[in-house]
């Protein structure tokens, strides 16, 4: 059983919704990015999605675009992100899922990529612009290497493709709550629950739901129907707004607040829940 499968099995057994975090690797730089991943784990995040920065992040809204730009300026590349994962892996109990656009992986080559990712301790890989129709060979290689291929499902995904993704995917499925690019919103999109219901009727695979989640009440709401909620852009805003010596504290406080830990409060740098931006 893979680490991701164990994580979600434990969550289901305890009847607790999971929290999945997304940060861009190398934002604000590789060293602090490593410390942030450790802080997220300490604060109780169940799965850490680690974004590989890319020059042309066309599925992302402004917050993650800016994070990608900062990370690229700080010298983050796919190879260095894999080194980063290898460095933090021994200190982290959460599952680690690499989030990437296709081209950095294509450039490295599928075989070298999966070998390096497996030896770095990556548990799952999601490639944003590699839909199931293009993913066959890549999916087989990742499974051979012991890495779970994660597929993304959207409100526009047909039931037939949901079934196909459920057959091909491992670990969990990533549902996006609404159309559009990544980013926080005031409220969870009304179609999100319907999407989760459609996925549930096709598979027992765990479902993490993302896009637009920034507050504990969002996490709790999503947790009523999905297995986990994904917080990305709002977390990246916390990192971007924190005073340099407060970043790790703010990240920990934010995650504990999102998880509804008793006594946890929002860090001062938390953005208000406005239409900003995964």
């Amino acid at each position: 059983m893979s680490r991701l499968e164990r994580t979600f099995e434990t969550l289901r057994r305890r009847g607790r919704p999971g929290l999945v975090t997304f940060t861009t690797a190398g934002d604000p730089d590789l060293e602090r990015s490593a410390a942030i991943l450790r802080a997220l784990d300490r604060a109780g995040a169940d799965v850490l999605e680690v974004g590989v920065p890319f020059s042309d992040p066309l599925a992302d809204g402004p917050v993650i675009q800016r994070a990608s730009e900062r990370a690229l300026r700080a010298g983050a590349t796919l190879a260095r992100v894999l080194d980063l994962v290898a460095a933090v892996r021994p200190d982290i109990s959460a599952g680690i899922v690499l989030f990437s656009y296709a081209n950095p992986i294509v450039r490295m080559g599928t075989t070298p990529f999966v070998e390096r990712a497996a030896s770095a301790g990556v548990d799952g890989v999601l490639v944003l612009d590699l839909p199931i129709e293009e993913a066959d060979r890549f999916r087989d290689r990742t499974i051979e290497a012991g890495i779970d291929p994660i597929f993304l499902l959207s409100p526009t995904t047909t039931d037939a493709r949901i079934r196909r993704a459920a057959e091909l995917g491992r670990g969990f499925l990533y549902g996006i709550s609404r159309l559009g690019v990544t980013g926080a919103r005031d409220a969870i999109a009304t179609g999100a629950e319907a999407l989760v219901a459609r996925i549930r009727s096709a598979t027992d695979l765990p479902i993490a739901l993302g896009f637009g989640i920034s507050r504990p009440e969002h996490v709790a709401e999503v947790g009523r129907w999905a297995d986990a909620a994904v917080v990305g852009s709002a977390l990246i805003e916390v990192i971007a707004r924190a005073a340099p010596d407060r970043v790790l504290d703010d990240v920990e406080r934010y995650v504990r607040w999102l998880r509804g830990e008793s006594g946890a409060t929002a860090p001062s740098a938390t953005m208000p829940a406005t239409a900003g931006e995964r």
Partner: peptide, 20 residues
């Protein structure tokens, strides 16, 4: 059928755009 001219082309889009 998959939109390939030899080994070039295809349909590398985020999931939301597959159906459209």
């Amino acid at each position: 059928e998959r939109g390939y001219f030899g080994e070039y082309g295809g349909r590398f889009v985020p999931e939301t755009l597959v159906a459209p």
